[in-house]
Design a protein around this nucleic acid. Sequence first.
DNA 1: CTAATTGTTTGATATTCATAAAACTATAAT
DNA 2: ATTATAGTTTTATGAATATCAAACAATTAG
Lengths: 97, 97
Amino acid sequence: MDIKQLDEKNELKQRIFFALSDPGRYKIISMLYHVGHEMGCNELNQHVEIDKSTMSYHLKTLRKIGITNTRTQGRQKFVSLNQATIEKVLPGLLEQL
Amino acid sequence: MDIKQLDEKNELKQRIFFALSDPGRYKIISMLYHVGHEMGCNELNQHVEIDKSTMSYHLKTLRKIGITNTRTQGRQKFVSLNQATIEKVLPGLLEQL
DNA sequence: CTAATTGTTTGATATTCATAAAACTATAAT
DNA sequence: ATTATAGTTTTATGAATATCAAACAATTAG
Protein backbone atom coordinates (compact mmCIF):
# COMPACT_ATOMS: atom_id res chain seq x y z
CA MET A 1 0.00 0.00 0.00
CA ASP A 2 1.49 3.36 -1.01
CA ILE A 3 1.65 6.52 1.02
CA LYS A 4 -1.31 8.12 -0.73
CA GLN A 5 -3.56 5.21 0.16
CA LEU A 6 -2.28 5.27 3.72
CA ASP A 7 -3.10 8.95 3.94
CA GLU A 8 -6.59 8.32 2.62
CA LYS A 9 -7.09 5.58 5.14
CA ASN A 10 -5.94 7.85 7.93
CA GLU A 11 -8.17 10.63 6.69
CA LEU A 12 -11.17 8.35 6.85
CA LYS A 13 -10.16 7.26 10.33
CA GLN A 14 -9.86 10.86 11.40
CA ARG A 15 -13.28 11.69 9.96
CA ILE A 16 -14.75 8.74 11.84
CA PHE A 17 -13.09 9.97 15.04
CA PHE A 18 -14.52 13.40 14.36
CA ALA A 19 -17.97 11.89 13.93
CA LEU A 20 -17.65 10.16 17.28
CA SER A 21 -16.36 13.22 19.12
CA ASP A 22 -19.77 14.90 19.32
CA PRO A 23 -22.24 13.62 21.93
CA GLY A 24 -25.17 13.74 19.54
CA ARG A 25 -23.40 11.97 16.73
CA TYR A 26 -21.92 9.47 19.15
CA LYS A 27 -25.40 8.57 20.33
CA ILE A 28 -26.70 8.31 16.78
CA ILE A 29 -23.89 6.00 15.71
CA SER A 30 -24.04 3.95 18.88
CA MET A 31 -27.81 3.61 18.60
CA LEU A 32 -27.67 2.56 14.95
CA TYR A 33 -25.01 0.00 15.76
CA HIS A 34 -26.76 -1.49 18.75
CA VAL A 35 -30.23 -1.74 17.25
CA GLY A 36 -28.58 -3.40 14.28
CA HIS A 37 -30.98 -2.14 11.64
CA GLU A 38 -31.98 1.05 9.90
CA MET A 39 -34.08 3.65 11.70
CA GLY A 40 -36.31 6.49 10.56
CA CYS A 41 -34.98 9.94 11.44
CA ASN A 42 -38.02 10.52 13.57
CA GLU A 43 -37.51 7.26 15.40
CA LEU A 44 -33.90 8.29 16.00
CA ASN A 45 -35.13 11.61 17.32
CA GLN A 46 -37.20 9.87 19.96
CA HIS A 47 -34.10 8.17 21.32
CA VAL A 48 -31.54 10.92 20.80
CA GLU A 49 -32.84 14.15 22.23
CA ILE A 50 -31.79 16.86 19.82
CA ASP A 51 -33.66 19.36 17.67
CA LYS A 52 -34.77 17.87 14.37
CA SER A 53 -32.78 20.38 12.33
CA THR A 54 -29.69 19.66 14.38
CA MET A 55 -30.34 15.97 13.85
CA SER A 56 -30.61 16.55 10.12
CA TYR A 57 -27.36 18.50 10.21
CA HIS A 58 -25.54 15.70 12.00
CA LEU A 59 -26.97 13.04 9.73
CA LYS A 60 -25.77 15.03 6.76
CA THR A 61 -22.29 15.07 8.28
CA LEU A 62 -22.34 11.31 8.76
CA ARG A 63 -23.53 10.84 5.19
CA LYS A 64 -20.77 13.05 3.85
CA ILE A 65 -18.16 11.13 5.81
CA GLY A 66 -19.64 8.05 4.23
CA ILE A 67 -20.47 6.00 7.30
CA THR A 68 -24.23 5.97 6.89
CA ASN A 69 -26.63 5.01 4.14
CA THR A 70 -30.00 6.55 3.56
CA ARG A 71 -33.05 5.02 1.96
CA THR A 72 -36.17 6.98 1.19
CA GLN A 73 -39.56 5.36 1.44
CA GLY A 74 -42.52 7.60 1.03
CA ARG A 75 -41.96 10.57 3.29
CA GLN A 76 -39.68 8.70 5.60
CA LYS A 77 -35.93 8.38 5.37
CA PHE A 78 -34.27 5.42 6.90
CA VAL A 79 -30.73 5.72 8.09
CA SER A 80 -28.41 2.81 8.59
CA LEU A 81 -24.81 2.42 9.57
CA ASN A 82 -22.31 1.62 6.85
CA GLN A 83 -20.66 -0.83 9.16
CA ALA A 84 -18.32 -2.30 6.54
CA THR A 85 -16.67 1.06 5.88
CA ILE A 86 -15.92 1.54 9.55
CA GLU A 87 -14.79 -2.03 10.16
CA LYS A 88 -12.44 -1.83 7.22
CA VAL A 89 -10.32 0.94 8.72
CA LEU A 90 -11.10 0.48 12.40
CA PRO A 91 -12.02 -3.13 13.05
CA GLY A 92 -13.46 -3.75 16.47
CA LEU A 93 -14.25 -0.13 17.18
CA LEU A 94 -18.02 -0.33 16.99
CA GLU A 95 -18.23 -2.96 19.70
CA GLN A 96 -16.58 -0.51 22.07
CA LEU A 97 -19.25 2.19 21.76
CA MET B 1 -21.91 0.26 36.64
CA ASP B 2 -24.38 3.10 37.00
CA ILE B 3 -25.41 5.61 34.38
CA LYS B 4 -23.15 8.34 35.72
CA GLN B 5 -20.09 6.14 35.36
CA LEU B 6 -21.20 5.12 31.89
CA ASP B 7 -21.54 8.78 30.94
CA GLU B 8 -18.06 9.49 32.26
CA LYS B 9 -16.67 6.61 30.29
CA ASN B 10 -18.36 7.84 27.15
CA GLU B 11 -17.11 11.35 27.76
CA LEU B 12 -13.56 10.09 27.95
CA LYS B 13 -14.10 8.10 24.79
CA GLN B 14 -15.42 11.16 23.04
CA ARG B 15 -12.46 13.23 24.18
CA ILE B 16 -10.13 10.57 22.86
CA PHE B 17 -11.98 10.59 19.55
CA PHE B 18 -11.66 14.37 19.49
CA ALA B 19 -7.93 14.07 20.10
CA LEU B 20 -7.63 11.71 17.18
CA SER B 21 -9.73 13.81 14.82
CA ASP B 22 -6.97 16.36 14.17
CA PRO B 23 -4.15 15.39 11.79
CA GLY B 24 -1.45 16.85 14.01
CA ARG B 25 -2.69 15.23 17.18
CA TYR B 26 -3.30 11.97 15.34
CA LYS B 27 0.33 11.93 14.25
CA ILE B 28 1.56 12.78 17.74
CA ILE B 29 -0.46 9.99 19.32
CA SER B 30 0.40 7.51 16.62
CA MET B 31 4.08 8.37 16.83
CA LEU B 32 4.16 8.05 20.61
CA TYR B 33 2.40 4.72 20.42
CA HIS B 34 4.63 3.26 17.71
CA VAL B 35 7.94 4.35 19.13
CA GLY B 36 6.81 2.89 22.41
CA HIS B 37 8.62 5.30 24.66
CA GLU B 38 8.59 8.92 25.73
CA MET B 39 9.85 11.61 23.40
CA GLY B 40 11.08 15.17 23.87
CA CYS B 41 8.81 17.83 22.36
CA ASN B 42 11.58 18.87 20.04
CA GLU B 43 12.15 15.32 18.94
CA LEU B 44 8.43 15.04 18.27
CA ASN B 45 8.62 18.25 16.28
CA GLN B 46 11.20 16.74 13.98
CA HIS B 47 8.81 13.95 13.09
CA VAL B 48 5.53 15.82 13.12
CA GLU B 49 5.80 18.92 11.01
CA ILE B 50 3.91 21.63 12.86
CA ASP B 51 4.86 24.95 14.39
CA LYS B 52 6.32 24.56 17.87
CA SER B 53 3.62 26.70 19.46
CA THR B 54 0.93 24.69 17.71
CA MET B 55 2.65 21.56 18.94
CA SER B 56 2.63 22.92 22.47
CA TYR B 57 -1.05 23.76 22.12
CA HIS B 58 -1.91 20.25 20.99
CA LEU B 59 0.20 18.64 23.68
CA LYS B 60 -1.64 20.72 26.25
CA THR B 61 -4.92 19.44 24.85
CA LEU B 62 -3.73 15.84 25.14
CA ARG B 63 -2.56 16.46 28.68
CA LYS B 64 -5.91 17.96 29.65
CA ILE B 65 -7.74 15.01 28.19
CA GLY B 66 -5.47 12.86 30.29
CA ILE B 67 -3.96 10.60 27.67
CA THR B 68 -0.38 11.77 27.96
CA ASN B 69 2.11 12.16 30.76
CA THR B 70 4.86 14.72 30.93
CA ARG B 71 8.16 14.53 32.69
CA THR B 72 10.54 17.45 32.97
CA GLN B 73 14.26 16.92 32.93
CA GLY B 74 16.39 19.99 32.75
CA ARG B 75 15.02 22.14 29.99
CA GLN B 76 13.50 19.25 28.16
CA LYS B 77 10.01 17.85 28.59
CA PHE B 78 9.38 14.27 27.74
CA VAL B 79 5.93 13.27 26.63
CA SER B 80 4.60 9.75 26.79
CA LEU B 81 1.31 8.12 26.01
CA ASN B 82 -0.91 7.16 28.90
CA GLN B 83 -1.69 3.92 27.18
CA ALA B 84 -3.56 2.35 30.09
CA THR B 85 -6.14 5.13 30.15
CA ILE B 86 -6.90 4.64 26.49
CA GLU B 87 -6.89 0.86 26.62
CA LYS B 88 -9.28 0.91 29.53
CA VAL B 89 -12.08 2.55 27.60
CA LEU B 90 -11.09 1.67 24.04
CA PRO B 91 -9.12 -1.57 24.08
CA GLY B 92 -7.46 -2.38 20.80
CA LEU B 93 -7.78 1.09 19.38
CA LEU B 94 -4.13 2.07 19.48
CA GLU B 95 -3.07 -0.86 17.34
CA GLN B 96 -5.30 0.49 14.59
CA LEU B 97 -3.57 3.84 14.28
C1' DC C 1 27.39 37.17 32.29
C1' DT C 2 25.67 36.34 27.69
C1' DA C 3 23.99 32.82 24.05
C1' DA C 4 21.49 29.38 22.75
C1' DT C 5 18.12 25.80 23.57
C1' DT C 6 13.54 24.07 24.90
C1' DG C 7 9.20 24.88 25.53
C1' DT C 8 4.97 27.81 27.15
C1' DT C 9 1.87 31.69 26.93
C1' DT C 10 -0.41 35.53 24.86
C1' DG C 11 -2.73 37.83 21.30
C1' DA C 12 -4.62 38.19 16.86
C1' DT C 13 -7.03 36.03 13.14
C1' DA C 14 -9.53 33.02 10.31
C1' DT C 15 -12.27 28.99 10.21
C1' DT C 16 -15.11 25.56 11.55
C1' DC C 17 -18.85 23.90 14.34
C1' DA C 18 -23.19 23.27 16.93
C1' DT C 19 -27.62 24.96 17.71
C1' DA C 20 -32.29 26.38 16.80
C1' DA C 21 -36.00 29.04 14.64
C1' DA C 22 -38.31 29.71 10.36
C1' DA C 23 -39.28 28.75 5.82
C1' DC C 24 -39.55 25.18 2.59
C1' DT C 25 -40.30 20.49 -0.04
C1' DA C 26 -42.43 16.27 -0.59
C1' DT C 27 -45.51 12.73 0.57
C1' DA C 28 -49.66 10.86 2.78
C1' DA C 29 -54.06 11.15 4.96
C1' DT C 30 -58.88 13.04 5.48
C1' DA D 1 -58.21 20.70 -1.56
C1' DT D 2 -56.48 20.90 3.16
C1' DT D 3 -53.94 19.41 6.66
C1' DA D 4 -50.54 16.68 8.93
C1' DT D 5 -46.15 14.33 8.82
C1' DA D 6 -41.14 13.78 7.83
C1' DG D 7 -37.24 15.81 6.86
C1' DT D 8 -34.12 19.50 4.63
C1' DT D 9 -32.30 24.10 3.93
C1' DT D 10 -31.54 28.77 5.17
C1' DT D 11 -30.22 32.14 8.22
C1' DA D 12 -28.40 33.87 12.26
C1' DT D 13 -25.54 33.50 16.27
C1' DG D 14 -22.29 32.18 19.62
C1' DA D 15 -18.74 29.12 20.91
C1' DA D 16 -14.84 26.40 20.00
C1' DT D 17 -10.67 25.39 17.10
C1' DA D 18 -6.37 25.76 14.72
C1' DT D 19 -2.62 28.44 13.48
C1' DC D 20 1.36 31.31 14.02
C1' DA D 21 4.12 35.33 15.41
C1' DA D 22 6.01 37.47 19.27
C1' DA D 23 7.05 37.80 23.90
C1' DC D 24 8.21 35.18 27.79
C1' DA D 25 10.27 31.72 31.14
C1' DA D 26 13.76 28.35 32.53
C1' DT D 27 17.76 25.80 31.91
C1' DT D 28 22.34 24.99 29.95
C1' DA D 29 26.57 26.11 27.42
C1' DG D 30 30.47 29.08 26.21
